Simulated scan of single mutants.
Amino acid sequence: MTDSKKTVVVGATPNPSRYAYQAAHMLSRYGHTFIPLSIKQGSVAGEEIMDLRQKPLIPEVDTLTLYIGSRHHAEWMDYLLSLSPKRIIFNPGTENPEFMQKAEEQGIEVVAGCTLVMLRTGIY
């Protein structure tokens, strides 16, 4: 098993049909600490979803994995960057050139990829 990477699942959901739900469960199975963060309420993989609207302070973030559409990024971009993650994974459908550029300018690794595939193939 790889070292645990504290991951914030942005757009977490208790809905089992969503990729964000699957990602939370897979992160847990692969031994990674994850923080579900969303405007949705409930819990996923045994963790209570934190309210994105409250912009909670989350220390020592390794990875943000995005499951919110790019049309919602402007509202949350500055807050998410303020968490100072080492990397941001833009899952399919969440790619955003402006957000990606801002992250890179702050020295954050930007990955256009799929968290689920990255975990399954051991490149997470």
Rank of each mutant, 00 (worst) to 15 (best):
V8K: 02
V8E: 00
V10S: 01
G11T: 10
G11Q: 10
G11F: 13
T13D: 06
N15S: 10
P16M: 09
S17N: 12
S17T: 14
R18M: 12
R18L: 12
R18C: 10
Y19L: 11
Y19F: 14
A20S: 15
A20K: 08
A20F: 08
Y21D: 04
Q22Y: 15
Q22N: 15
Q22M: 15
A23G: 03
A23Y: 02
A23L: 05
A24T: 09
H25T: 10
M26E: 15
L27V: 13
L27W: 10
S28Y: 09
S28A: 14
S28F: 07
R29D: 15
Y30L: 11
G31E: 13
G31S: 11
H32V: 08
H32L: 11
L37C: 02
K40V: 00
Q41F: 13
G42K: 13
S43W: 06
A45M: 10
A45F: 12
G46A: 08
G46N: 04
G46T: 05
G46D: 10
E48Y: 09
I49C: 04
I49L: 07
I49Q: 03
I49K: 02
M50V: 05
M50S: 06
L52A: 01
L52Y: 05
P56R: 03
P56W: 02
P56I: 01
L57K: 14
P59Y: 08
V61K: 00
V61G: 03
D62P: 09
T63K: 06
L64M: 04
L66R: 06
Y67E: 02
G69S: 14
S70N: 10
S70Y: 09
R71G: 10
H72P: 05
E75W: 09
W76R: 02
W76Y: 14
W76G: 00
W76F: 12
M77Q: 14
M77C: 13
Y79R: 06
L80V: 06
L81N: 01
L83S: 02
L83R: 02
L83G: 00
L83Q: 04
S84P: 00
S84V: 03
S84T: 10
P85H: 00
R87P: 02
R87Y: 03
I88E: 04
I89Y: 01
I89F: 01
F90N: 05
N91A: 12
P92H: 11
P92E: 13
G93C: 01
G93M: 06
N96E: 01
N96H: 07
P97A: 11
E98G: 04
E98L: 13
E98N: 08
F99P: 06
F99H: 05
M100V: 08
M100K: 15
Q101Y: 02
A103N: 09
E105M: 11
Q106H: 05
G107C: 01
I108L: 04
L116T: 04
L116N: 07
L116S: 07
L116D: 07
